[in-house]
Every structure is written in structure tokens, then in C-alpha cells.
């Protein structure tokens, strides 16, 4: 074999074994085909767009969660931030704030919560698990206090702003048949991919998660890098929260409970290592889609929705087991 050809072969091998997405994509296709065969209702455009819409908000948060996990950290407060920023925005709208301002302040609140997470974790050295567990409760409490435990409704009766339909369009509208929410998800995924693979910040997230000491010795300020990741996931959680209220027209204190674990699950199913240092945005997108397709397929097959959690849980374990197994066989 010529040297040139050898280089190509070894690169191809490298691509096939290093691209973790290949395995998870095959699994996704298998699940997809299974439901397509088993249910006549699964494989049609309307249902598939419906699936995509259902996972869009989770997907937006999972993009940020992937970055946090790549840094070797975890964030349990995203579900609370998702709920709280929506409630804050809704209450501001009902109290006469212009919608655009309430929107911006809601997003800013979510980003601020993320920043607080990041600063506490990096400067006080309290583990992320503890800080974000605390924040999960603190922020959830804020939601309940503000909403007094009641459902907050957004409608022309409660909000006096002519731009309300525009806001609701973000959650309920469609462009060329595709829900606007899905477009937000797609845009977030592209943005996250670009950030992770093509920018210095993403590169440094990988480095910091891969070896904290080597990163420090390379002149990388890991505090800034990690804080940025937490701020980004806070921002995205708030964005998802606002899209949710625009979709439903209402929000309550408990909105978003459990969202954090679903987001982490999607990231892990997608092949990102909880140990940090290696992650994949494409894999995370596929992980999100797998969760959506499973939930949808289970319902279409007439299986009790109570089974959903059990099946998704089993898939998480299976995905990680497969990942470990393929990496072992790839090495020897």
C-alpha cells in the first residue's frame, strides 16, 4: 500500500472508531425502524414533526448540559431555572412590563442563576453536584413564592401588550410547516456545535474537563471556562422556559421538575462521558431524538405510558454499556 493510501485508511479507521456518534446513530435508526414497522401511525410527517416539537425544549437545554458535562461538571438546577425564568417573565408581563423587556429580563435571570452556579463552584470549590442541588431548591422556591403556588396564565385578558400574539407565535407558530420551537432547537444545536468544535471556548472546555492540572499548566483559566458553561446552560434553560410558556400560555411553580435528569440522560445516551473531557453535540441531538421517539412510539403502540420511564431508564444503562463495550473492543 502506498504511504498516501495508508494515511487514508488509518484516517478512515480513526473516524469510524473515534466518532462516537456512529454507534448511537445506528441505535437510533434501529429504534426508528422498529416503530415504523410496528405502528402505522409512526412514520408520517405530521407525527415526526410532533416528536421533534415535543423534544425541542429538552433539546435546547441538553445542548448546554453537554457543555457543562464536557467541563467535568453537572447541573441539577436547569429544570428549576426553566420554570423560574418563565414565571418571572409572566409576572412581569402581567404587571405592565413591555413584553420585550420581560423577555430579556427573564433570559437574563436564567443566565444570572447559571453565573451564580459557576462562580460558587469555581471559586468556593464546592462540588457542582451540591451547589446545583442547592440552587435547584432555591430557584424552585423562588418560583413557588412568586406564583404563590398558583397557575400563572398569559392571555390578552391578563397581559395588556399588543405584541402578545408575536410572543405566543414563538411557542405556537409554524414557519413552512415547522414549529418555530423546533427552529429554535435546530439553531441552538448548530450554535452549540460551532461553539464546541470551532471556537477557543469549546476547545478549552474539552481541555479543562480532560485534565484540570494540564489545563492550568497550559495557561487556561478553568474558572472562567466553567463559569461560561454554567452561564450558557442557564441562558438556554431560560430560553426553553420562555418558549414553553409561549406554547402553553401558562406556567406554574412546579413546571420543569425532572427536566434536569432528562437533559443529563439525553447527553449520556448520546455518548458524552460523565468523566468530562469528551463530548459530542451531534450525539446529544441524537440522544434527545431517541428519548422523543421512545416516548412517542410507546404511546402509539398502546403501551401504558407508565412504562415510559422504565424503558427510557433501561435505554440509558444500555447506551452506556454499549459505549463501554465498543470502546474496549475498539482498543484491542
Amino acid at each position: 500500500m502506498s504511504v498516501e493510501a495508508e494515511v487514508h485508511v488509518s484516517r478512515l479507521k480513526g473516524v469510524l472508531t473515534s466518532k462516537k456518534e456512529v454507534g448511537i446513530f445506528i441505535a437510533f435508526v434501529a429504534i426508528f425502524l422498529f416503530f415504523s414497522v410496528m405502528s402505522p401511525y409512526f412514520f408520517n410527517v405530521e407525527n415526526l414533526i410532533n416528536v421533534l416539537r415535543q423534544v425541542s425544549l429538552l433539546g435546547i437545554i441538553a445542548m448546554g448540559m453537554c457543555l457543562v458535562i464536557v467541563c467535568g461538571e453537572i447541573d441539577l438546577s436547569v429544570g428549576s431555572i426553566y420554570g423560574a425564568s418563565a414565571i418571572l417573565t409572566a409576572v412581569m408581563m402581567m404587571n405592565g412590563f413591555p413584553i420585550w423587556l420581560a423577555f430579556v429580563l427573564g433570559i437574563a435571570a436564567g443566565t444570572l442563576f447559571g453565573l451564580i452556579n459557576g462562580v460558587l463552584i469555581t471559586y468556593t470549590k464546592i462540588p457542582a453536584l451540591i451547589v446545583t442541588l442547592g440552587m435547584m431548591n432555591v430557584v424552585r422556591g423562588i418560583s413557588l413564592i412568586i406564583s404563590s403556588g398558583r397557575v400563572v396564565n398569559i392571555s390578552p385578558r391578563t397581559v395588556d401588550d399588543p405584541t402578545l400574539p408575536l410572543f405566543l407565535f414563538l411557542g405556537q407558530g409554524k414557519i413552512a410547516g415547522i414549529p418555530v420551537m423546533c427552529l429554535f432547537f435546530i439553531a441552538t444545536a448548530i450554535g452549540a456545535y460551532f461553539l464546541y468544535s470551532k471556537t477557543l471556548l469549546g476547545f478549552r472546555m474539552k481541555a479543562v474537563g480532560g485534565s484540570a492540572r494540564a489545563a492550568r499548566a497550559s495557561g487556561i483559566n478553568s474558572n472562567i471556562v466553567k463559569t461560561a458553561a454554567f452561564a450558557i446552560v442557564g441562558f438556554l434553560s431560560a430560553l426553553a422556559g420562555l418558549l414553553n410558556i409561549a406554547f402553553l400560555g401558562s406556567v406554574q411553580g412546579t413546571t420543569g421538575q425532572g427536566m434536569e435528569l432528562n437533559a443529563i440522560a439525553a447527553v449520556i445516551i448520546g455518548g458524552t462521558s460523565l468523566a468530562g473531557g469528551q463530548g459530542t453535540i451531534i450525539g446529544t441531538v441524537i440522544g434527545v431524538l431517541i428519548m422523543g421517539v421512545l416516548n412517542n412510539g410507546i404511546i402509539l403502540l398502546g403501551i401504558s405510558p407508565f412504562w415510559q420511564m422504565t424503558i427510557v431508564g433501561a435505554v440509558i444503562i444500555l447506551a452506556v454499556a454499549l459505549d463501554i463495550w465498543t470502546r474496549k473492543s475498539g482498543r484491542s
Partner: peptide, 12 residues
């Protein structure tokens, strides 16, 4: 511990 980033490529 303090030199290599074990999961990154040579280029990175």
C-alpha cells in the same frame, strides 16, 4: 497528570 490531555488528539 499535568502534561497530557489523554482524550485529545495530538493536534489538540
Amino acid at each position: 497528570d499535568a502534561g497530557i490531555f489523554p482524550d485529545m488528539s495530538i493536534m489538540d
